[in-house]
């Protein structure tokens, strides 16, 4: 019961943080609130027994992501209090998506149900083989490295491609139409 109450409290804090991210316009507050958001997420993961995910979220999501956003926000101008765009279509979209998801979620098993279908199929074998065959006590590491090694290789390729994209974007000085336009604007002054 204690676990459920802590979970309720942390998830509610997450929703409040999301609301304030939606409301604020100052860039540095958005970045700080995003850091708080990811830290709350890692607390939720610890409470839900996902310790490896919590490690990754605290190191990568809360650490590197926040550093990148601070570095970007330092180079960008202060956010302006502009009014929201596309308000009417996005409200319709939000209501439609919520209705569809509520219909789906009504049929899901309750939180922590040990007889849910997800717990019955492959995972008992993974737990058993981890102990008897691989002798690795941490099952998450075992699945990540030995059962699903190619998945991890694909992830590495994705990160490499994203890194190449970031370098190509940040070092490009090609004069395109937009840059010519900017030069014209400077000449007008």
């Amino acid at each position: 019961m204690n676990f459920l109450l802590i979970n309720f409290f942390l998830i509610s804090l997450l929703l409040v943080t999301t609301f304030f991210i939606f409301k604020t316009t100052s860039l540095i507050s958005i970045v700080a609130l995003t850091g708080a958001f990811t830290l709350l997420c890692s607390a939720i993961y610890v409470n839900l027994d996902a310790v490896d995910v919590a490690f990754t979220e605290a190191a990568v999501g809360s650490g590197i992501s926040t550093i990148l956003m601070v570095m970007a926000a330092a180079k960008l101008p202060e956010g302006k209090k502009n009014k929201l765009i596309n308000l009417f279509p996005s409200i319709i979209l939000a209501v439609a998506i919520s209705l569809i998801l509520i219909i789906i979620i009504a049929n899901l098993p309750l939180l922590g149900d040990p007889n849910a279908p997800i717990h019955l199929h492959v995972v008992p074998e993974y737990l058993k083989e981890s102990k008897d065959f691989f002798h690795i006590p941490n099952v998450v590491t075992n699945i990540l490295a030995s059962y699903r090694g190619f998945d991890t290789l694909g992830e590495t390729i994705v990160i490499f491609t994203a890194g190449l994209g970031v370098i190509a974007l940040l070092t490009s000085n090609t004069l395109n139409r937009k840059t010519n336009f900017k030069k014209n604007k400077k000449n007008e002054r």
Binding site: V53, V123, L127, I143, R148, E155
Partner: peptide, 16 residues
């Protein structure tokens, strides 16, 4: 442990 592994991959890809 299986969703944990999937999310471990997805977090890193999300940061990228």
């Amino acid at each position: 442990p299986l969703p944990h592994v999937l999310i471990l991959t997805a977090i890193v890809v999300g940061v990228a």
